[in-house]
């Protein structure tokens, strides 16, 4: 059996679905056909397709967490991120391609949440592919109308004095939420802070982890 991915684990640490062994579907036939035709016509190569898959697999919420933690600890970078999130992310060495990114910041008075009602636009070149719920009809329909109920389903309940700002990625920009830095993290390194930043906290459907859940770093030396 031609498997070229049996030794790969997904970003979540699980094996991929064993799709090679499932009955061939019409749409899989189409994918194989298009791939072979594009290779034969010289549009692409098998190696390029594999390289693109590897590039996408390497993008994960950990990239965004690194960016957020730097913004929490470096005032100049924080300003640069809010001014031009694409340039700031690229300056940290992340290969984000043509991604045009806007960072929106949570404060004591504002909570931001990202949605794409028209399709499923997502800052994929920084955070990797979107979670399934982000692409669901329910999330895309409800978030612009009842964001507080949606957030409550994710376990985020906001006080009345906090304004919710929903960002609908309708056109060319993509968005990342800069969550508020948790209290009790003074003097934490950026590396340690990054462990608090979850994928959902950068979409706005979550908050950073409780600092108490992160183990103390081992003493050096």
């Amino acid at each position: 059996m031609p498997h070229d991915h049996h030794d790969h684990l997904s970003p979540s640490g699980h094996p991929y679905r064993p799709d090679d062994d499932h009955p061939l579907t019409y749409w899989q036939q189409m994918e194989i056909a298009i791939r072979e035709i594009l290779i034969e016509k010289g549009v692409t190569t098998a190696a390029e397709i594999n390289a693109q898959i590897d590039t996408m697999d390497a993008r994960s919420p950990a990239n965004g967490a690194t960016v957020i933690a730097r913004a929490w600890t470096d005032p100049a970078f924080h300003a640069a991120l809010l001014d031009d999130a694409s340039a700031a992310s690229a300056s940290m060495g992340f290969d984000i391609g043509p991604l045009k990114l806007i960072a929106v910041e949570n404060t004591q008075d504002v909570h931001n949440v990202i949605v794409c009602t028209l399709c499923s636009c997502y800052p994929r070149n920084l955070l990797g592919l979107p979670p399934d719920w982000y692409k669901s009809r329910a999330y895309r329909s409800r978030t612009v109308k009842e964001p507080r109920k949606v957030l409550a389903e994710f376990g985020v309940t906001l006080p009345d004095h906090v304004t919710v700002r929903v960002h609908d990625s309708t056109a060319d920009m993509r968005y990342i939420v800069v969550p508020a830095r948790p209290d009790g993290t003074d003097n934490w390194s950026a590396d340690r802070l990054a462990k608090l930043v979850t994928r959902d906290s950068m979409i706005g459907t979550g908050l950073p982890k409780d600092p108490g859940t992160i183990a103390q770093p081992l003493p050096s030396g």
């Binding site: 964001p147 304004t163 919710v164 929903v166 960002h167 609908d168 309708t170 920009m173």
Partner: peptide, 8 residues
Amino acid sequence: DDTIDAEI
């Protein structure tokens, strides 16, 4: 008073 931002 909550808001929706969209690119138009």
